[in-house]
């Protein structure tokens, strides 16, 4: 057992066993308190709800590991969704063919990438703080979106899009599949590619990374560009799930994504963080929210519980640190 935990810790990060433990406790509590919690229908509905927040959290994750933050994720997703909607409307709205959809998706991804690239370039070449740059981009994109839509909804998309938001393949919801693929790609990117390696090094000490010959500017630009692409994926998914686009949709998720990263043990100073613990943190958040929902509470109570949960985890980490130190002392 101990050997297994050590192996897991080494492979996926020290947070994983604790998070799995948390998850088990939370599931057990809701399983006892709400009879319908441990039903297939509930798991299905959770699997449909999680991917939206999940994709956005992955888009937040890499900038945080690099020592920054991307506060523009929600509106990047909105603008990308808007781009797809616009392309579909150009080709007849509900009558638009699959070709139009493919074109629209390409355009949406491009717009997401462009928004991210602009931020990345400003951060990399001007050296401005990522919080300020992404905040300005957020305000700009929100304004742009509201200007284009006049604050309204855009809807009336082809019916063949519904399966992307609501369908299942081999029992797995399509949104979940999209999320799992994205998480896997992100995991491989962070752990196995040169870009991922550079992300961690930049997050810990960008000057030393540059002295060692890493292309820090290109890496920073790529970090935010890829973050923008993933936002676009989330935006497309949101369009297919709600069959409409509204600027501001998902606004409340912005700081939840940061919360999920911290819950997943990502170092707020940058340099450390992994995909798997963050995914586990997302599952815990979803379980909390679905469980509370089954007990009759609304989403707002879930939001509060999420916040309190993060505080609780931080306190537990502090206690664990103290205990660990005390034990070391005794060893000598």
């Amino acid at each position: 057992m101990r050997a297994m935990i050590t192996a897991i810790t080494r492979r996926f990060g020290p947070e994983v066993p604790a998070l799995v433990g948390f998850l088990a406790v939370v599931v057990a509590i809701f399983g006892l308190a709400a009879p319908r919690f441990l039903s297939l229908a509930n798991f299905d509905s959770m699997a449909f709800q999680l991917p939206e927040l999940g994709l956005l959290t992955l888009a937040m994750l890499v900038p945080i590991i690099s020592g920054g933050l991307n506060l523009a994720i929600i509106y990047t997703a909105n603008i990308a969704g808007l781009t797809l909607a616009w392309v579909l409307l150009q080709f007849g709205g509900a009558e638009a063919g699959p070709g139009a959809f493919v074109l629209g998706v390409a355009a949406a991804l491009l717009v997401g990438a462009a928004a991210g690239a602009v931020m990345g370039l400003v951060i990399a070449h001007i050296g401005a703080h990522p919080i300020l740059v992404s905040l300005a981009m957020m305000i700009f994109l929100r304004g742009l979106g509201e200007f284009l839509t006049r604050g309204g909804d855009i809807s009336g998309f082809p019916s063949y899009l519904a399966p992307i938001g609501h369908g299942s393949v081999l029992g797995l919801p399509v949104p979940m599949l999209i999320f799992l693929v994205a998480a896997l790609v992100w995991h491989v990117m962070l752990t196995r590619t040169r870009h991922g390696f550079a992300v961690y090094m930049i997050g810990s000490n960008i000057r030393a990374a540059a002295y060692s010959g890493l292309h820090t500017r290109r890496t920073l630009t790529l970090i935010y560009t890829l973050s923008g692409v993933l936002c676009a994926v989330a935006g497309i998914l949101m369009l297919t799930r709600f069959n409409s686009v509204r600027v501001g949709h998902g606004e409340a998720l912005l700081l939840i994504t940061v919360l999920a990263c911290f819950l997943g043990g990502v170092d707020p100073f940058g340099g450390f963080g992994r995909v798997l613990p963050v995914v586990l943190a997302l599952v815990i958040l979803q379980v909390l929210s679905s469980g509370l929902n089954l007990l009759g509470a609304n989403q707002h109570l879930s939001t509060a519980v999420w916040g309190l949960f993060l505080i609780g985890v931080m306190i537990l980490r502090w206690v664990a640190g103290k205990v660990g130190q005390g034990r070391k002392r005794k060893d000598l």
């Binding site: 919360l259 911290f262 707002h300 109570l301 939001t303 509060a304 916040g307 993060l310 505080i311």
Partner: peptide, 11 residues
């Protein structure tokens, strides 16, 4: 960020 969510959710 935690207290932001906690305060708002509870409110």
């Amino acid at each position: 960020i935690a207290t932001f969510n906690a305060y708002f959710g509870l409110l």
